[in-house]
Amino acid sequence: MERGLYIAASGMLTELVRQDQLANDLANASTPGYKADRSAQSSFGDLLLSNTATGQTVGPLGLGVQIAETKTDLAQGPLVQTGEPLDVALQGPGFLAVQTPQGTRYTRDGQLAVDAKGGLTTAMGNPVLDAQGKPISVAGHASDLTIAADGTITAGTTTLGKLGIVSLTNPAKQGDTLFTGTAGAAPAGTTVLQGSIEGSDTNPARVMVDMIVSLRAYESSQKVISSIDETLQQGIQSGGVA
C-alpha cells in the first residue's frame, strides 16, 4: 500500500503523545516539585530507494517519525514562601530520599508532614530518609523544629537528624511527585530552605506555544493523508493504480 499514508500517520500519532504530555504539564502547573517533560523526535530508519528497472539509486526515504526519548526538565522551579515549619525547598540540584513500599524513591516536593508516631514523612505519608537511609523521628517537636541550610533538623539545642539529599542519575517520574533513579553522592552547593516549597517548573507560555506547534504539525500530517487519499481516488477513477 501507499507508504506515504503510514509515514503521515506516524506523524499524527507522535504529536498525540506530545499533546498528552503537554496536557499533563498544564495539569501540574501547581504541583510542588513537578518537573515538565520534553520529548525529542527522531525518524525511523531510512530506506534506500532504487529504480526497479535500472537499479539506479534514487536516494533515502524516511519512514516516518517517533518520539526518541522523553527528557524530564530538571530546571529549578520557583520558590514559594509558605512560612510553614515543615515545608522545605531544595535550592540547587538533588533530591530528598523517601522510603516507599516499593523501595527508596526520590522527590523535590518539600511539603513534609509528621505522622502519629512522630516520624518525618512526605505529604503522602512516606518516611523521609536521612543521609544514612534511616527514617527521621521528630517526636514531640513537630511545631518547634528548625531545618538548617544543610538539612540538619534541630529543636532548641537537640539535633534530631539530617535530611538526606542525593544526586540522581536517569531520574524517571512515577507519580505522587516521586522519581526513580540511581542515587549518588550529595550534590555540591545544594541548600535546604525551610518555610518555602519549590513550585512546578511548568512554564505555561512555553507549553501553550508547544501545544499550538504540535497541533499544527498534527493537522499538516492529516492534510498529507487527505491528499494521498485524494490521489488514490483519482487513480482509481481514471482506471489506473497509483
Partner: peptide, 25 residues
C-alpha cells in the same frame, strides 16, 4: 497540596495522568 498522578507508557514514552490534591491539614 498538589501531586502528579501515575505515568503510563504511550508509544513507549511516559505520559502522566494529571494532578490531584492532598490534604495537608
Amino acid at each position: 497540596g498538589f501531586r502528579d498522578l501515575v505515568y503510563e507508557a504511550e508509544q513507549g514514552q511516559p505520559v502522566g495522568a494529571g494532578a490531584a490534591t492532598i490534604d495537608l491539614g
